[in-house]
Simulated assay, not measured.
Amino acid sequence: MRHLIPSWIRVPLVFFIIFGLVEYFVESGEKPAFIEYPMVLLFLVLILFVIIAIEAIVSSLENILYQSLDEESKTRYDAIETKTPKFIAWIQNTYKKSLGQKPIKEEHEIILDHNYDGIRELDNDLPPWWLYAFYASIIFGVIYLVRYHVFNGENQYDELETEYVEAKIAIEEYKKTAKDLVDFNTVELLTSASDLSNGKAIFEANCVACHMSDGGGGIGPNLTDEYWILGGGIKNVFKTISEGGRDGKGMIAWKQSLKPSEIAQVSSYLLQFQGTTPAKPKEAEGDVWQE
């Protein structure tokens, strides 16, 4: 039988489908890009079935035409068939065996006695590929049942929990290097020279007018004593700078102008004023703060 689809197309297609099925159903690391999406695999399988259907129809038509030839024409046809290259012939024979069809010359052995208006039937067995697939599905089903329902193998819920744990670890690692993800709940007092130096620059550029360069206070409160209007400590100071002070008369919210990492730096810097002696300290405001 002459195939409509060349072997160099059909063979790789079958290989990719088999390889894809194995990769999809058996965990073996990362899957190839074309298998990550189930629809791609389904599309390849559909193409294979369409090819098989088309070639089955063509094969039937060829059989009918072959039967209508005289002996001389059949001989010439058979001679052409034998000129097929060995590799291609091996592929074709393997393909024919997978269909389980009888050669045209042997079809008389499987003709049924039934006759419907001159139409007779062939008693073909189920194709070997179908039987093997059926047996494989039974074996797969038994293994799946034993592994996941008898021995309680790892299921999708377990995989999801594992991925959650891995994601949380990855997020924590990312936060260590992503300083602008810091907020009121996660901010910590910074002590490195570079952070305090940046905090000082921000303080001198934005805060000196209200708090004085030595933190003694002016329009704003004194930063050197232990009294705080909205609470002391790195978390409260960060929140006050970020969200602003008291409504109507407090400090503006700096979150529109400063990055979270910059707010953390200036908050850590101004806490260095605690316990120092400014030149002109403002009177205490607020309540004594204790950690």
Rank of each mutant, 00 (worst) to 15 (best):
I54P: 02
R10M: 11
I241D: 05
E204T: 09
D70N: 12
G232R: 02
P85N: 15
I18V: 15
S257N: 10
S7Q: 09
V266Y: 01
E161Q: 10
E163P: 05
I54Q: 06
L189G: 00
Q256W: 03
L160P: 03
S7C: 15
V58A: 05
D225M: 02
G216V: 04
T75V: 04
P12M: 05
I51N: 05
E283S: 07
D117Y: 15
P38E: 11
F19R: 10
L258E: 10
F238M: 05
V146A: 14
P38A: 09
A33S: 11
L196F: 13
S261K: 06
E107P: 05
K249E: 09
F15N: 08
L271E: 01
S60N: 11
Q265D: 07
T186I: 09
W228L: 05
V146I: 14
E36P: 01
A56Q: 10
I17G: 02
F151K: 04
Y227R: 09
A136E: 04
I171Y: 14
K176L: 13
T84A: 08
E109I: 09
I111F: 08
F203C: 06
Y66I: 09
L223K: 02
Y157L: 12
V288F: 00
P128K: 14
G244Q: 08
L230W: 06
S261Y: 03
N63I: 11
H3I: 15
Y77A: 15
N152Y: 07
C210M: 03
A53Y: 13
I18L: 13
G231K: 07
F25R: 06
S257Q: 07
Y24E: 06
M39Y: 08
F16N: 08
I51G: 04
V288Q: 03
V45M: 15
K97M: 15
E204W: 02
A284K: 10
V237N: 01
K83W: 01
N124K: 13
D195W: 11
F34D: 02
I17W: 05
K280C: 00
I143P: 08
A279D: 13
G250R: 03
C207W: 01
N63S: 14
L145Q: 08
N206H: 08
T75D: 15
E36M: 08
T94A: 14
Q101H: 15
H211D: 12
S268R: 08
G100W: 07
Q272W: 00
G233Q: 06
G286I: 03
K176Q: 13
E159F: 03
N222V: 01
N115V: 13
F49R: 12
E262C: 09
P38G: 04
T177G: 09
L4Q: 09
K83M: 13
F43A: 10
G218F: 03
W254V: 00
